[in-house]
Amino acid sequence: MLEKKENLNMVNKQVELNRGLAHMLKGGVIMDVTTPEQARIAQEAGACAVMALERIPADIRAAGGVSRMSDPKMIKGIQEAVSIPVMAKCRIGHFAEAQILEAIEIDYIDESEVLSPADDVYHINKREFKVPFVCGARDLGEALRRINEGATMIRTKGEPGTGDIVQAVRHMRKMNSEIARLVSMREEELFEAAKKLQVPYELVLYVHENGKLPVVNFAAGGVATPADAALMMQLGAEGVFVGSGVFKSGDPAKRAAAIVQAVTNYKDAKLIAELSEDLGEAMVGINESEIQLIMEERGQ
């Protein structure tokens, strides 16, 4: 944790370093893994980072009950198995879980709606931490609120563990159209926009002037095929999280490598056609209308 006495400049430097790491992940694929063996498969397939968790979202969904931060020992096993960055999830608002993940020197914390929320009002004050955070968002307001709390990377929420891309697409499109709207506004209209989005004026001004979020924005939730990854990249994602899509499929190593290449050359349909051949079974999807638990509504 950052000491209170440290000055604002130090805090800003840390934010810059943490936003910087997200830049290093750009154009890459972050994969959910549950064992050191899976982590090695992911790294060899070209993952730019792994997300260490005990159960992937599809299994969390199947098991039901309260879902929490993973066992630190299991996370450490994965940290030892790979040289790429290792991320882990804590529950929304559960700053004590976040403190534990920082203590074991995780590279990025995902304050995630995939786990059961610990606080139904407040997210973690991420500015108090030295370790970086990524958070999910369904729209521009959620994204900017998380950034204001100290998140240095954003991802769409999508609907985790379904293999259904529709929610991630909806979230990315909504964010894009809201950004375009801010860009086209007259400056005096930005104050009202900030009020409606429930975010500080400075963040709204940044989006107005730059036409993008001040942090890197990935797609997550429901990515199962190279085509899904290419779709999200063409919609403006700067990289992709694949949760259940890899290790719930027939041939994880091959599918993972294909998704990595599809993200790099997301506009080359001919290449993606070749990559999509003979990948074996994709994860069994669940349609939006078939699910009981809507994770995307957690934490707003």
Binding site: H23, M24, L25, K26, G27, G28, Q43, E44, G46, A47, C48, A49, S83, I84, P85, A257, V260, Q261, T264, N265
Partner: peptide, 15 residues
């Protein structure tokens, strides 16, 4: 540029 060298190293061969 910066990024993950394992990923970049793998992709420049595969591509």
């Amino acid at each position: 540029p910066g990024g993950e060298s394992t990923v970049q190293g793998k992709l420049i061969r595969e591509l």
